[in-house]
Design a protein around this nucleic acid. Structure first.
Lengths: 400, 400
DNA sequence: CGCTTTAATACGCTTTGCGGATTAAATGTG
DNA sequence: CACATTTAATCCGCAAAGCGTATTAAAGCG
């Protein structure tokens, strides 16, 4: 751990103040003092420095006076113009890019429905570069205005180095995607598992706001697992984010081969003999789900098997992390009771009795926005000053 | 997180100094300065305070002079007499108690081979109380000399509250064992999963000394899992330590029903029809292992199945934690290649390729001592001052 | 006996957070 | 409209922390 000196002290308390303002909306200094347990004096000093750095700003009072006497409180809020960051989400058939301000509000967004699977990392990096430049330009900004960028992608990512160990969107392993991008764009680039970003976004903006421990499971073309543990994103040694698809379930099969959209389609095609065109993936999934909902036995069974397999893995994860909540998302699959009911039943059946009532499983539907906002939030976290304990993102070297 | 003030700063740096001295033997002030990145001045101030508190002592130079000129270094070491603590390990058929000094060296030890399984918590607490008092008396100390006590037991333990959610040695659930004991003995009592204690002991004294991430798996009458993650013991939300036996493996069976000594014996008895006496448990296990080693097919298969089941669970854990090392221990089972070879093979077969070469699986034989030393270390950690982030052990209330 | 070398400390400086007194800015009241 | 009241924010002085420089301590070497 880093050695403690006054500078670290200030960094920690500064972050506490920033975090309080971010989480609990516009706050007055007294309120910050109450929330952070810092003395009013200290809060005053820190907020003065933050105002000086233009990281926060005074909210022009919008009429709302609280009905009490005394000097009115001066409300402070994050200064949206303090910085702009870029969030990128890579999926097998879609690149999403967004530029946000310092409050993680979208300024501009761009979706590129491109099948990038099986392209070389260099080609993908080129595509992303183009998308980012375009999106930044749409926001009427230049690259030099961008303080940082974060990429979320499915697979196993070593966050500390920006290396993607393995991913369904890369045909190679150990792709140094962070460096590829930071060299192209000249900004600091962080790379992380896509679901980690949603977990962070949930913690910042969503349902996990009050929770310091929860799991996020995403069921799309691949399976993702994001873990918020004790208020921090959980990563393995080396900063590795695991891939839920790599988990094993009964019969020693990879969960990724049993419970993804792709595995479902493969199974469905095997009975129907029908094959959908390459670009009809979403529709094919939706149709399969509809048939299951309608009660067609084979389809329902396929979904149920997937749900049971997921339940198995989730039960093990609950045993380990004991989170009060598990959030499940996914474009179509996650909405179907044909999948969820067996999933919940499996979890309930398999959880040890001592953990039976610990955890609630919740389905959550997300727009694409939350992913890129999460990516932006990941970068903002650094800018807020959280970087004292962790190693920051890969910065573009002056050489090269 | 706690708010940062000068006091916290000092606590952190004090702990760094203590930790450096503990880990790297007797150290001079300059060496501490190098190891901790603290300035010589600060080290001087802190060590002066520690000497004043008698937590460390000056090592009477034992002849060894380094061949250089200049003022000789004054070597500092932990003062063994700074405090005494008690470690307790509970197993289904054995209570082990030890008193150690401030360096976690044994002063006295006591083993009580008692079948405590199915006794009421109150009775068990009575037995432990007697053992502790006896052992303390053997060490020629009184209870008031004891600074703290830590109990390790198999099962799911909520460390923060001292409550054992579920354990093979308790017939009830949610046993507030920490409070039971602290009330009886009048000292602070911590309760933790037994394997967590070994993990800590390994980190302090053993093979994990240089590692900040590793797993410990113990295979005895029940299965234990201890996780050291980023230099800290890993616990779930609420401070819950998971039980490896609760993990599920192929076929949705509890691992605890497949790969413990007890499950092996049950299976063995089913083919042989032979039943060993209650007190011959260890011998029965050893005999079954011997038969397997000798090549008796059924026995070998039983061990292989257990090994595969363990391998399945361990592969999932490696996927999640990506630890460079997994330590496996267990009185008899862990020593047998009939179990280990299938275990290793299963892990190798199931691990995703991106993690294939990350982790080494090592078998480690432990004496009973390490468990109780680990328990002592857990208490010492508090005394060294590590308690700034975590909630301490259950202290005996003045009321009651 | 003095010189050199290394270890440890003393002193002064800067920074931090905090408590108490003070100022700022509103409302209420005679 | 002057003045008290109330609440928010700040100013001032203090104590404690870590660090850098200069100083002292304790050995060997010639």
């Amino acid at each position: 751990m880093k050695t403690a000196d006054p500078e670290l002290m200030r960094a920690i308390n500064r972050f506490h103040v920033m975090d309080a303002i971010r989480r609990f909306g516009p706050l007055s200094r007294v309120e910050i003092s109450e929330r952070t347990d810092l003395s009013p004096t200290t809060v005053s000093a820190i907020t003065a420095a933050l105002l000086d750095d233009r990281l926060i700003a005074i909210l022009q009072l919008g009429g709302l006076r609280d009905a009490s006497r005394g000097r009115p409180r001066v409300m402070l809020r994050l200064n949206p113009e303090a910085a702009r960051v870029v969030g990128v989400k890579l999926a097998p058939d879609l690149i999403t890019v967004a530029v946000t301000d310092f409050c993680a509000n979208l300024i501009s967004k761009l979706s590129l429905p491109i099948r990038i699977r099986r392209q070389t990392p260099a080609v993908i990096a080129d595509l992303v570069e183009d998308g980012v430049r375009r999106c930044v330009s749409d926001a009427e900004l230049e690259m030099k205005d961008i303080a940082g960028l974060c990429v979320g992608l499915p697979g196993v990512v070593a966050n500390a180095t920006g290396v993607c160990r393995q991913s369904p969107i890369f045909s190679e392993r150990d792709v140094g995607f962070g460096e590829l991008l930071s060299r192209r764009l000249g900004v600091a680039v962080a790379v992380d598992s896509d679901v980690n970003l949603v977990a962070l976004a949930e913690h910042w903006f969503g349902q996990g706001r009050e929770l310091d421990d929860f799991l996020v499971v995403s069921i799309e073309r691949s399976l993702g697992l994001g873990i918020l543990h004790k208020g921090e994103l959980f990563r393995g040694a080396n900063g590795l984010s695991p891939d839920l698809g790599d988990f094993l379930v009964r019969g020693a099969a990879r969960l990724g081969d049993l419970a993804t959209e792709d595995s479902l389609l493969a199974e469905v095609e095997s009975f129907a003999g029908e094959s959908d065109g390459l670009y009809a993936h979403d529709k094919a999934v939706a149709r399969a789900v509809q048939r299951a909902e309608a009660g067609e036995a084979k389809y329902a069974q396929a979904l149920a098997r997937a749900g049971e397999a997921l339940g198995f893995a989730i039960a093990n994860l609950i045993t380990l992390f004991a989170p009060p909540k598990v959030l499940i998302c996914g474009r179509a699959l996650a909405g179907s009771e044909r999948l969820l009911t067996p999933l919940r039943a499996t979890v309930a059946a398999l959880l040890p009795p001592s953990l039976a009532d610990v955890c609630e499983i919740v389905v959550r539907e997300w727009s694409d926005d939350i992913w890129v906002r999460g990516a932006a939030a990941m970068t903002l976290r650094e800018l807020y000053g959280a970087s004292w304990g962790t190693t920051g993102p890969a910065k573009p070297g002056p050489e090269n």
